[in-house]
Nucleic acid binder design. Sequence first.
RNA 1: GGGUCGUUAGCUCAGUUGGUUAGAGCGCCACGUUGACAUCGUGGAGGUCACAAGUUCGAGUCUUGUACGACCCA
Length: 942
Amino acid sequence: MFPTFATSSNDWRFAGAFSFPAMTTPDPNSLPSNYDFAATEAEWYSRWSEHGVFTASAARAAQREPFVIVLPPPNVTAVLHVGHGLNSTVQDLLIRWRRMAGDEALWVPGTDHAGIATQNVVEKQIAVEGHTRFDLGREPFVERVEQFVAQTGGEILHQLKSLGSSADWTRTAYTFSPELSVAVREAFVRLWERGLVYKGHRVIHWCPRCGTSLSDEEAEFTETAGKLYHVRYLLADDAAQSITVATTRPETMLGDVAVAVHPDDARYAPFVGREVLLPITGVRIPVIADSYTDPTFGSGAVKITPAHDANDFDVGKRHALSMPVIIDADGIVREVELAAGRVPPSLAGLDRFVARDRIVELLTAEGALVKVEPHQHNVRHCYRCDTVVEPRLSDQWFVHMQPLAEKALAVLRSGQLRILPERWEAVYVNWLEGIRDWNISRQIWWGHRIPVWYCDACSSTAGTSTPIVSRDPVLFCPTCGGTVRQDDDVLDTWFSSWLWPFSTLGWPDRNSADLKAFYPGDVLVTAPEILFFWVSRMVMAGCWFLDETPFHTVYLHGTVRDMQHRKMSKSLGNGIDPVDVVRLYGADALRWTMVAGLGLGVDVMLDPDDLEKSFAPGRNFCTKLWNIGRFLLSRVGTEPVDPIGVLAPESLTAADAWILDRLDQAIADCDAALGPPRPSAHGAWTEAEKGRGLRLSEYAEAARRFVWNELADWYLESVKPRLATEGADREVARAVLAHAFDGALRLLHPIVPFITEALWQQLPQTPHPALLATAAWPKQRITRVLIGDAFEHTRETVQAIRKVRAEYNVQPGGWVDAILVASGPLATVLTAQLETIGVIARGRVVIAPIAPTGLASRIVLSNGVELVVPLAGMIDVAKERQRLDGEIAQLDKQLSALDGRLANEKFTAKAPPELVVAERAKAEEWRSRLEQLRAKLTALGE
RNA sequence: GGGUCGUUAGCUCAGUUGGUUAGAGCGCCACGUUGACAUCGUGGAGGUCACAAGUUCGAGUCUUGUACGACCCA
């Protein structure tokens, strides 16, 4: 059922062919002049699906190299945007490439339950009904979210199909499925058993709107124009003296427990150990010395609010200070904990930002506000709802990350893992080396409930509060048999997605066939934004739980931006809906546009206001390819062609040899741009191969150049007359034409799968193979038929004639006379080319041993041959002289530079000898050409 | 404040260990509908490789500094 791949055949065209019940072979002569991408894309996607092209097999993976990519799971409620389009195009390209190259290619798709994001969506829905989640209660709310997900979730996966994504949909996974939930609990329990999960009481990032804690990564910095308030705190024992502190958040002064100064700061030395009075409330707090204080910032004295600032929390711990909480979970100022007498009635119940304004007023009234300065600083915002994050003291679950980070660093250093572009490796290392513990508990309801239970009876009687941590639900206390209650918190969404590369393959079941066959995977394709959120955590999880990095390559692609270089986003309204693009221009046009513009790590610029212009490269390419195919196939016809391997070398023309050589070169260029697909030895990248491959735009350019600039522009033009005459040479031309186009379509298929499949089906193949999607990736010929560079002479001659024609505005239909002045072997080579040159350049071309005299346009070709185009009565002497003058001037300049270099003894002595020899030869060549040109100029003047 | 990187044609970018006359796509200019293709063809213009100094026979490429910019982290 699946193709075998020839290893030694010179003829890879049929190597991957496997027979299907005959498909209809429409007459290529009747291909419509306009490509119907909508119908074609729908038809071929369903045929690929029907034939199981996308479905990988663990059994087959034993016989060949597996190649595995896991899709970064989009949020289950997400709608496709152009970033997803870019991301999945890259993955599909790689998967299709490796599938053709003979790997057992597996692309695992799926979605993420996206705890906070999804909960927010449903909360907004019920808000319309005038309710909060608390009105509904936990279980009904979760049911409501489940319903919502069941009804609308996963739509994005269907949208991905319209882009041609060849993911294995039979393996579609979901981070909140029963199977993956098992993996989540397993991971939590294992980390607990190793002492790496713990419950901590500390200041975390709190989103008052979402009502939950956030990890460091989820609280994003935004540059904000704020104010720096300088507030005077009077000494308790001497109201004549004071300390001024600087703060950006005056409302937190209600929770101040100290003023800290640097121990070496002489200005404040006399105050240390004494007390100051908090303005407004009059609470007495000590002045302490702590080296955390930066004496150069603000006044050099800083207020300490341990419950509402992570750094202050550390200071508070060091000095055993109390930690009053004065802002509650909703962001309201009040006496929450240990704060009796700290919040005046006039401020209690106010929102934190309203309270800030009121406090500033009160401070001003009291005369405690010294000054206010404008101040640029970074403020953390919730990555889900953009609310300003409130640092808040609370109980949370953490993972102690350092042991995991060490493993993730080790695999990078050993070369088992690489990141492209390589500069991101430094960022990765930097982050892992300074890793902080991961807050994994969230105070929301939508997510994996933390697998921890408490027995109230035991903790009150025995005085132990040891939680019961379990893989399976706990119904009764194992100690006393009493009732238990489960921890209310759920796990961070990323705690399930960090297991994605193996939880989707059946882990923790070590005997899972998929896990054995497909772990570890190969490439992870994503944007740099989630390097820490997801990528590095997956590496840590893979290394920790399975002792192997989950992939050997991380490919970080650029971001899609608009013409002002702004990231495309819903809020800016500058997004592009890929579904629109597919509807207007087709998936292939979208894919080509993105891939062609995708330099390594480079952002893709698209104009949301001008889709036509933005996607013109892809649309134009597809149109051109369709026209090439339509014309070429109509000329080749439906009769079977000879396999290229059976053609006698001597039956090939210079053009045949040239295009076959160009195809070999294109294959080599594409392979070099894409590969190597995996480390060649011992699972680790060598220094030499580490930075190579995944140059997608180079791959696209190499394939484009071949099919457009070489096959269509030159070979197809040159072969027209041969096809018009019945006979052996026509059969050679047909065979070469079919072979070259077949190779081009194979090279292009990973980028533009639909149009290439549709065209490929029209090739006259025997036996008729089934699908390009599973055909073999092209290989260079082992034996090259070399006929020198005869066809290059043709190309240069044609271009020279065209230049003369353009110069003198010869009508396209008009024919010109041209004489090639040549003798010896070169004359022989050119003689064989005269007809071809004539047809392409529309010239009556002859060879002559001596240049004819008289007025003519004369061009010296690089092979020394003089091209003479008489153009009777049309030659403009001034124009000819100007052209020759220009050429002579430039060549003269270059030659003097070269001569200067050769005259430099240091150069001839120190440069590599072969270079010196080459440069001397070049100088001679230029000198003789210069003489030729000067002779022409002289002749012109006579 | 720390880290990483960038600055090459009007725009977006290649340029792999220093060594041909620095390339591509798009855009621009001229001509053109010759029976595949105007979503196209042919020809052409356009760059002191940010700036300064250094190493070298030789620098877009290596070193240092300056300017501007981007991204990540605190």
